[in-house]
């Protein structure tokens, strides 16, 4: 009597086990497929261009707001900002220029640059182009960091069109 009860219990336990072999086979195939397409470096891209000679006529839409082109010069000792525009007068453009010194810090004051660019964008929302002019000794990593700051600020688009240029002396 006791033996038959034990046998019944063992039988119930065996029936309760799930056969995982088909699931494992599916998992194995999916894992293999994903491993094949796995990228060990997640590569992204920043679109940019160099200045080109163009004969196109820039026609401003009537009644449009001022469209600025912001110039960011990365120098050894700091970042110099200036603005260009066909729609604004020279005095206004002169007032928009500024300089952020590195002072004794090893890194560039990119947070100051970011907040200044945000102010410019708020004031002139139609502006979308930034020209980055680094000095010859500036390392590529600094240029990319400056581009990041100029393009976006906390997912808010600032100046998405980046043009990179060497300094014309």
């Amino acid at each position: 009597m006791l033996g038959s009860r034990r046998n019944r219990k063992r039988l119930d336990e065996e029936e309760a086990d799930i056969d995982v072999t088909p699931v494992m086979n599916v998992f194995l195939v999916i894992v293999l497929l994903l491993l094949i397409s796995f990228s060990f470096f997640n590569l992204k891209a920043i679109n940019t261009s160099v200045p080109v000679l163009a004969n196109s006529e820039v026609v401003a839409a009537p009644g449009s707001d001022i469209r600025l082109t912001v110039i960011v010069e990365i120098e050894e000792k700091g970042i110099r900002l200036a603005a260009l525009s066909d729609d604004a007068d020279a005095e206004t453009l002169k007032r928009l220029g500024t300089y952020f010194s590195k002072e004794s810090a090893p890194n560039y004051p990119l947070d100051k640059l970011s907040s200044y660019l945000q102010t410019l964008k708020t004031k002139y929302p139609k502006s979308d182009t930034v020209i980055i002019i680094p000095e010859g000794s500036i390392v590529y990593d600094t240029i990319i960091q400056t581009m990041d700051v100029a393009r976006y600020s906390k997912d808010v688009q600032l100046f998405p069109h980046v043009v990179i240029s060497g300094k014309v002396s």
Binding site: N42, L43, K44, A45, I46, V52, I144, I164
Partner: peptide, 22 residues
């Protein structure tokens, strides 16, 4: 970098993508 991108611009490639890591 500038010497290379300038050459590329002259060769008819004024637009670039700078490859970066996420």
């Amino acid at each position: 970098i500038n010497s290379i991108i300038k050459t590329a611009g002259l060769a008819g490639f004024p637009n670039f993508q700078f490859g970066v890591l996420k």
